[in-house]
Design a protein around this nucleic acid. Structure first.
Lengths: 90, 90
DNA sequence: TAGGTATTTAGTTAAATAACTAACTATTCG
DNA sequence: CGAATAGTTAGTTATTTAACTAAATACCTA
């Protein structure tokens, strides 16, 4: 279970990106940027971290790159949490 | 949903502490320290971060402080993950 | 009370992180 | 081709984080 996932979701802005993508299905980097105050370069860095953690997909189409959630990776976090939550079974 | 929880679980050593406490129910700081290479002062800092995030309980007994998991807080993380995982419902 | 053990706090340092601006790459379209 | 747009990469800087050692606090026991 990759450390990069936990690092990725440790940042509030990145968690916000995930929420936005949950709601909007698929958005270009520029569209995501409209939700934030910081520069596009900063957003690009956040997207890279989310991509490296496999939390989002990127699909290039023309001059745009569309991002969407990779919901399957959340299963891993889920498993981790459930394991700690349950009082029996190691 | 507190940022401090995500920050707390972002560190691999702290996640290891949670796993150890899951298995052992309740351990003193010194007992937890035997699982790690780093100093007791460093461990103490990690425990403080986990305590501030409400992920663990501390109960003083004589000269020892016993730590245990606060499993109820994992419900919050669970809710967060489930919300992102499900494809409908915002 | 003095000495020992357990743990935390204070102060420091090195490494990691998040932001910025500027420059670069890729694509579109006149 | 050349300009405009979208996005990333490079390089810098300030802040945060995780570690260390040393000192402080708290409790126990002879």
């Amino acid at each position: 279970m990759s450390d990069s996932i936990f690092k990725a979701i440790a940042d509030a802005n990145r968690r916000k990106i995930l929420q936005i993508l949950k709601q909007q299905q698929s958005l270009s980097a520029g569209e995501i940027a409209t939700y934030f105050e910081f520069s596009k370069a900063s957003l690009s860095e956040h997207l890279k971290i989310l991509r490296n953690a496999n939390l989002i997909f990127a699909k290039k189409s023309g001059q745009y790159i569309y991002y969407s959630l990779n919901t399957s990776v959340f299963e891993d976090i889920l498993t981790w949490v459930l394991n700690l939550r349950k009082s029996e079974e190691s």
